[in-house]
Design a protein around this nucleic acid. Structure first.
Lengths: 139, 139
DNA sequence: CTGTGTGCAAACTCTTTGCATAAGT
DNA sequence: ACTTATGCAAAGAGTTTGCACACAG
């Protein structure tokens, strides 16, 4: 939950060969200042506008992809039309509420996964995603 | 891997209040005759055309959604533009090859998941999806 | 016959791209 | 100055929808 100051963010961006522009800094701040989050491009765009940082949708798309390639954030593996980005890159998992396309962090991630299979030749495991799909309990 | 004959398929469809039309039967046969598969709408559509079953893309979309609601198939939780449908509804998991949007079944599904978290009030677990993301090993 | 399913094309949503302008170094 | 980023609008991919026609019961 440590909020990072602009100096940190600028350094981080510079280190990934990303110029610390006004837009990138603002988006990074929105992303990382509030702890772990998962949001869509649309949501981040709205937040930026509300925060009086006029930034175009296309730039939010570009920026989130650049951040993803830089390893600052991650793409969530949930089905559905839109893409969710996750600011938490450490191992943790998610609830997915069926019919509402909603994603929730799993509070205490003490899930144990065992007996992971061997990846095919020449491949290595990048990350294990566990999505627990939930549905409304039928009384 | 048991191939089902048309009688079975018709019965199955009828049981879900889906009229066994030519198209639905043909699609069901393509889906279930070859063991477990995961495919996109596009792929199934091409297969149907190749099998000389002229069916429209829209019908493939409709049919796959109806089959999903009927519990005959399942939607795969992988990110990316297109939706994958899985003919295997039992508990099993997937490899996802990053950068190629490719899905592979995990051969022997002996993964053990333990310490599942308690779902929020009024919710129950529908299914647990495990996606092991792979990347090309960097020498 | 009656109601449901199908096919086509148009509409929609989310995402990407091309190119002129603006900003960073 | 030189290079890279941004914004806009247009294009693109995948998916959904409306409505006339066809088919199953």
């Amino acid at each position: 939950m440590k909020a990072e100051d602009s100096g940190d963010i600028e350094k981080k961006l510079r280190h990934r060969a990303l110029r610390p522009t006004r837009q990138r800094i603002a988006l990074a701040r929105l992303l990382f200042a509030k702890g772990d989050r998962h949001l869509t491009v649309e949501e981040l765009h709205e937040e930026a506008i509300e925060a009086r940082v006029p930034v175009s949708l296309a730039t939010v798309y570009n920026t989130l992809h650049q951040f993803t390639e830089a390893g600052l954030i991650r793409v969530l593996a949930v089905e559905g039309a839109r893409t969710y980005f996750d600011t938490n890159i450490s191992d943790h998992h998610h609830f997915f509420i069926e019919g509402q396309n909603e994603v929730l962090d799993i509070p205490v991630s003490n899930i144990v996964i065992d007996n992971l299979p061997t990846p095919p030749e020449g491949m290595e495991i990048s990350h294990v995603d566990v999505v627990i799909r939930l549905r409304r309990k039928i009384a």
